[in-house]
Design a protein around this nucleic acid. Sequence first.
DNA 1: GTCTATATATGGATAGAC
DNA 2: GTCTATCCATATATAGAC
Lengths: 222, 222
Amino acid sequence: MLFIIVDCKTSSARICAMPHLKKATPENASVNKRILDTALDLFVERGFHNVSIHDIQKQANVSIGSIYNHFGGKEGVAKALYYHLIREMEELVKDVVDEGLGYRESCNRIIYMLFEYTETKRNIIAYVLHAKHQEFLPDEPPICSSTPFKTMRNIVQQGIESGEIREGDPWVIASSVFGGAIRLIHLRLDGVLKEPLPKLYDELIDCMWQGVTPAAIQESVA
Amino acid sequence: MLFIIVDCKTSSARICAMPHLKKATPENASVNKRILDTALDLFVERGFHNVSIHDIQKQANVSIGSIYNHFGGKEGVAKALYYHLIREMEELVKDVVDEGLGYRESCNRIIYMLFEYTETKRNIIAYVLHAKHQEFLPDEPPICSSTPFKTMRNIVQQGIESGEIREGDPWVIASSVFGGAIRLIHLRLDGVLKEPLPKLYDELIDCMWQGVTPAAIQESVA
DNA sequence: GTCTATATATGGATAGAC
DNA sequence: GTCTATCCATATATAGAC
C-alpha cells in the first residue's frame, strides 16, 4: 500500500517507519489514491500490458471515466506512478544525504533502506527497479538516469574525491558499490532468494567495502 | 543476428568468435531461423507486447500461417527464443568450465564473455538479462533460476569450498561476484553508460576480487 | 508446409447522462 | 467529477485454398 502518493513529505525517510495502525482502507481513500494504489498492485503482479483499464476500474471501485479524468488513460496512470515513486525514492535518498553521515555510511543507509523496502513495500521497489518502463513509457528517460540514481552515483563520486572510496572509473565504482545489493533485490523479487534481505545486509556490506575501500584505509584498519 | 538457433554446438564459446564474413542473409535462411531472428530483434527493440504477429510476419517475410505452424503463436516464438538463448548461454558457461581454469578465472571469463556479447550480440543479452519474461511467459521459471545462472552460482560455491573465494552466504558472495558486472550490463543496455564494457573489465575485476578474496590470499599477495 | 482472408475477442477511448 | 454504454481499432487465431 502507498502512503506516499498524496504528499511525499509525509513519508519521512525513517527506516522501518511503517505506520501499521493506519489501516489502509481503499474504500474511503481518495479516488486518485485508489487508482494509483491498485494500479501499482496490478502492474507489478501482472505487468503493465496484462492489465486493462477495466481491471483497474473494477479493483479500484471507480469508473473508467474517472481514470480518464484524472490521468488521461492507462499510460497516464503508469506515468504518474512512475514519477510519484521516483520522487518518493528521491526523498529517501535525499534524507539520507542530509543526515551528513559521510559518503560510505550514506551508501550503507541507502542499501539498507532499499532492502527494508523490498520486504515491506515490495511493489514500490518492484515497480521502480524491476519493471521495464521503456516498454510502456517509451518517452520517459530510463529509470537509472533519474535523480535518485544520479544522486547515488553522486555520493559515490564525492566519496572518491574525499578519499573515502577507492579511485577509479565512476561507473565501475558505483556499480561495485550498489551492484551486489541490486542483484540481491532482483533475486529476491523473482522469488529465487528465500531469505529476507536485511539478514544479508551485514555480510554484503562487508564484501562490498572490502572491494572499494582505498588501499590506505584498508591497511590502517588491518 | 543469431547464428546459434539452428545448432547450438556450432557457436563455440570462443570469445570474439564473430564470423563476420558469414554475411547474414535473412532472405535465404530457413523459415524457422528467420522467424526467431526477427522476433528477437523486434522483441528487444519494442518489447514483446508491442510486437504483433503481423509485425514479425512482415519483417521476416513469412506468412502468419508459418508462424503458427512452427511455433503455435507469438508466445510460442518467445518461448522458443527463451530456451534457445538460455541453452546458448549454458553452452558458453559450460565451455568456460570445461577449460578447467580454476574457479576465479572461470568467473572472470564468464564476465568477459558477457561483456563481449553485450557489445557484439546485444539483443541476445538484452533478451536474456533485460527482458521481463514473467510478463509474457508466466509459466516459465524466472531466468535467474535457469541452468546457466545456476552453474555460475555453482562455480562460486565450489570456489568458496576450494578456498579460492571468500566464505559467506552463497547468495551474497555470488551477487558480489557477478552483481557489479550485471549492473554495468544493465546500464549499458539502457544507453546510460556510453563506454564499451570490455574497457571497464579490468577495473571491475580488480574491485570485485578485492571484495571476495579470502583474507589468507589477500595477505600473501600483499 | 505455406499462404490469404476472415472470424472473434479484447481493450483503449469517447460521448453524453447524472 | 463521476458514471455507463458504446464505438472502433488492433491483434490473435483459424479456416481453407494452393
